[in-house]
Simulated assay, not measured.
Amino acid sequence: MRTFGDRVRHALLFEAVALAIFIPGSAAVFDKPVESMGVIGVASATIATLWNFIFNMGFDRSLRALRGTVHKTMAIRVVHTLLFEAGLVIMLIPMIAWYLGIGIWAALVMDLAIVIFYLVYGFLFNLAYDRIFPIAATAARPA
């Protein structure tokens, strides 16, 4: 199991590398200023992090109240993921549309592209992270 320090390193590296790729990449893809996409990237990452904490706490409390356990089956994990992403999309689309001065439809397309980027990035980042910082190496260190 990973240590607290390793989890902090993972989270910080995940966001730093993502933003280093996302900001210039999205500016080029969407033909928007780097500064604007930097604001969108940092705001989105901050909102996603806060939403993750709040949503997971509420989801687990609801799950315990409804089922008596927080154990998640595959079906519950799929529902969990879909509800999390739906909530995030609902929060981010108006912010993106307002900040960039674009329509809701354009903001939805942009947000879906961001979601796809983070799905692929998250998968690849975690593969790389596990190779660079194997669990056995971090678990052997004192807490």
Score class of each variant (00 low, 15 high):
Arg7Trp: 04
Gly87Gln: 00
Arg64Ser: 14
Ile93Leu: 02
Arg2Ile: 11
Phe53Ile: 14
Tyr99Leu: 03
Pro94Met: 00
Ala43Trp: 06
Ala27Trp: 02
Val42Pro: 02
Ala65Gln: 11
Thr3Ile: 13
Trp51Pro: 02
Ser62Pro: 10
Thr69Pro: 06
Val89Phe: 15
Pro33Gln: 03
Tyr118Pro: 03
Phe4Glu: 06
Arg61Tyr: 07
Asp111Met: 12
Met95Gln: 08
Val42Glu: 00
Ile21Ala: 06
Ser62His: 14
Ala106Asp: 12
Leu83Val: 08
Ile132Val: 15
Leu50Ile: 10
Thr81His: 12
Asp6Leu: 10
Asn52Ser: 15
Phe117Trp: 13
Ala113Arg: 14
Leu83Asp: 03
Thr49Trp: 15
Thr46Ile: 15
Phe84Thr: 00
Pro33Cys: 04
Ala97His: 04
Ala48Ile: 04
Asp6Ser: 13
Ile21Met: 07
Leu12Phe: 14
Trp51Ile: 01
Ile76Val: 13
Val89Lys: 05
Met1Asn: 09
Phe14Arg: 06
Phe53Ser: 05
Phe117His: 08
His71Thr: 14
Ala140His: 12
Phe133Met: 05
Ile132Asn: 07
Leu63Gln: 12
Val109Met: 12
Asn126Trp: 08
Val34Asn: 02
Tyr121Ala: 07
Ala16Glu: 09
Gly58Pro: 05
Ile21Cys: 08
Val120Met: 12
Leu50Phe: 06
Thr49Gln: 13
Phe59Tyr: 12
Ile114Lys: 11
Leu83Cys: 09
Ile40Asp: 00
Met95Arg: 08
Tyr99Ile: 03
Thr3Asp: 10
Ala107Phe: 03
Pro24Ala: 02
Ser26Pro: 04
Trp105Val: 11
Val89Asn: 04
Leu13Pro: 05
Thr46Cys: 13
Ala139His: 14
Ala48Asp: 02
Leu124Cys: 08
Ile21Arg: 04
Val120His: 08
Tyr99Lys: 03
Leu124Glu: 00
Ile23Gly: 01
Arg7Glu: 00
Ser36Tyr: 09
Ala143His: 15
Met74Val: 13
Thr46Gly: 13
Asn52Gln: 11
His80Pro: 04
Ile135Pro: 10
Phe125Ser: 02
Leu19Gly: 02
Ala86Tyr: 07
Gly103Trp: 04
Arg64Cys: 11
Val115Cys: 06
Ala106Gln: 11
Phe22Val: 03
Leu83Gln: 05
Ala16Arg: 10
Val109Cys: 07
Leu119Pro: 07
Val8Ser: 06
Leu19Lys: 05
Val79Ala: 09
Glu15Thr: 14
Met91Trp: 08
Leu100Cys: 02
Met57Arg: 13
Asn56Gly: 05
His80Thr: 03
Ala143Val: 11
Lys32Glu: 07
Ile114Ser: 10
Met110His: 10
Val115Tyr: 06
Gly103Gln: 03
Phe30Gln: 09
Pro24Thr: 04
Asp31Ile: 09
Gly25Ile: 05
Ala107Cys: 07
Arg61Ala: 12
Pro94His: 01
Ala137Val: 15
His71Asn: 14
His71Trp: 13
Ser26Thr: 07
Ile116Cys: 11
Glu15Ser: 12
Leu112Ala: 08
Glu35Cys: 09
Val109Tyr: 10
Leu127Val: 11
Thr73Pro: 07
Leu66Phe: 14
Arg7Ser: 03
Phe133Lys: 07
